[in-house]
Simulated scan of single mutants.
Amino acid sequence: MSSSIRTVFREDHEQFRQQVRRFVEREIVPHLRDWEAAGIVPRDLWRKAGENGLLCVTVPEEYGGAGGDFGHSAVLIEELARVNATAVGFTTHSEIVAPYIVAYGTEEQKRRWLPKMASGECIGVIAMSEPGVGSDLRGMRTTAKLEGDEYVVNGQKTFITNGGNADLVITATKLDPAAKELTLICVETDRPGFSKGRLLEKIGLKGQDTAELFFDNVRVPVTNRLGAENEGFKYLTHQLAWERTIIGIRAAASIEAMLEETLQYVRARQVFGKTVFDFQNTKFKLAECKAQATMLRVFVDDCLGKAMRGELTAEVGAMCKLLGSEIQGKVLDELLQLHGGYGFMSEYTVSRAWVDARVARIYGGTNEIMKEIIARSL
């Protein structure tokens, strides 16, 4: 569905889309394959994005952001997904990390970190996952022991998006190892005792620097605590509905882009003296994909509208993530199949999109967890 017939966006959103699209085509698309080979996006891109007002778009202007809304966020998410540039980690930085600081940070913390995040000078990450600890956040083992006016942080985090480039880490910790309550501590990566492990090799999102992070008696002032002690789990869950909706937004945009690419391919590809599109099976498969894409688009836009009005619930966010990622996996598999052997070649965007989409059913809480959340309302 063309963005011109979608009602969730205003004129200023579509104007922003043109700005984002120009930047993506100029600064990102020509370099994606190189970044995938390197396993990391250069910091120079982050600074360029900051100069163009593409980072932290919902952060208030007084803290260096653009003062936009979730519609502006969705535009950026969609434009990156359209060219399969999900590995560029702007979304985690701008839509997950920065909002935590806006929502729970002190005035001093906001002025210290947000302007640098908006400019691309400081890259922020959220560190929750640990080795052996998946979706059960209360089972984490990273600790923060209070000593005078400092916390001493010890532990290990893994699967951290933007971990290689990270400058500021919102770290989920426990003040009492035996307790379930979590406390969020902001750790600058230049502090003694903090270290980054190797960049993790993944089957998809290869250009995204995913890393392990280590905390060995890292001393952090009490003023770096984000929000109140033992309230971290509540803070994390408050933000999850939007984080999961992001995955649905990305899925819908990816499906639409890959459907268009596949249509172009099957109309040009000749088999047995006619185009692949001329076969009835091809038309039927594409019809099914179009129907699925249209249905998902309507639902995702409804979820986005709820987010923009402040009406998004945990249940709806979970449904958006569940349906978006499941439909994305199925539709992209069909579209890859229509490319035949070329669909297995990484030079075709559909092959990389298909691989990259697999993690959508895992991160943001596995889809099994999404079903648990939805089931609570039955």
Results as ranks from 00 to 15, higher is better:
residue 69 D to G: 06
residue 49 A to T: 08
residue 41 V to W: 02
residue 71 G to L: 00
residue 85 A to S: 05
residue 125 V to T: 15
residue 140 M to C: 09
residue 55 L to N: 03
residue 147 E to W: 06
residue 101 I to K: 05
residue 94 S to K: 08
residue 61 E to Q: 07
residue 103 A to H: 15
residue 86 T to P: 05
residue 103 A to Q: 15
residue 135 S to H: 07
residue 122 C to A: 12
residue 37 A to D: 08
residue 64 G to P: 02
residue 107 E to L: 08
residue 137 L to V: 14
residue 142 T to S: 14
residue 126 I to F: 15
residue 80 L to K: 01
residue 60 P to I: 07
residue 39 G to R: 02
residue 61 E to P: 02
residue 71 G to P: 01
residue 40 I to D: 06
residue 116 K to H: 10
residue 71 G to C: 05
residue 80 L to R: 02
residue 64 G to N: 00
residue 96 I to Q: 11
residue 112 R to I: 00
residue 53 G to L: 06
residue 118 A to L: 00
residue 141 R to Y: 11
residue 96 I to G: 00
residue 110 K to V: 03
residue 129 S to T: 14
residue 125 V to I: 15
residue 117 M to E: 02
residue 63 Y to K: 01
residue 92 T to A: 12
residue 132 G to A: 07
residue 89 G to F: 10
residue 136 D to A: 13
residue 39 G to F: 04
residue 90 F to T: 11
residue 146 L to C: 12
residue 81 A to R: 03
residue 108 E to P: 04
residue 106 T to E: 13
residue 121 E to K: 05
residue 103 A to T: 14
residue 93 H to L: 10
residue 68 G to S: 02
residue 42 P to I: 09
residue 70 F to M: 05
residue 78 E to H: 13
residue 129 S to V: 11
residue 144 A to P: 09
residue 126 I to P: 04
residue 146 L to M: 14
residue 99 P to T: 13
residue 111 R to Y: 03
residue 56 C to P: 01
residue 47 R to H: 07
residue 114 L to M: 00
residue 109 Q to C: 12
residue 120 G to W: 02
residue 55 L to I: 05
residue 91 T to M: 14
residue 102 V to P: 05
residue 45 L to G: 08
residue 42 P to L: 05
residue 61 E to F: 06
residue 115 P to W: 01
residue 89 G to C: 13
residue 113 W to I: 05
residue 55 L to V: 01
residue 71 G to S: 04
residue 99 P to I: 12
residue 50 G to N: 00
residue 123 I to E: 14
residue 126 I to Q: 15
residue 52 N to S: 14
residue 121 E to Y: 00
residue 112 R to A: 09
residue 102 V to L: 13
residue 83 V to T: 04
residue 102 V to Y: 08
residue 112 R to S: 06
residue 105 G to S: 11
residue 52 N to M: 12
residue 133 V to Q: 06
residue 78 E to A: 13
residue 74 A to T: 10
residue 76 L to M: 13
residue 59 V to P: 01
residue 90 F to M: 12
residue 81 A to H: 07
residue 109 Q to D: 12
residue 82 R to A: 13
residue 84 N to E: 08
residue 124 G to Y: 08
residue 80 L to N: 01
residue 59 V to Q: 01
residue 86 T to S: 12
residue 77 I to M: 15
residue 116 K to A: 10
residue 118 A to Q: 03
residue 135 S to L: 01
residue 96 I to T: 10
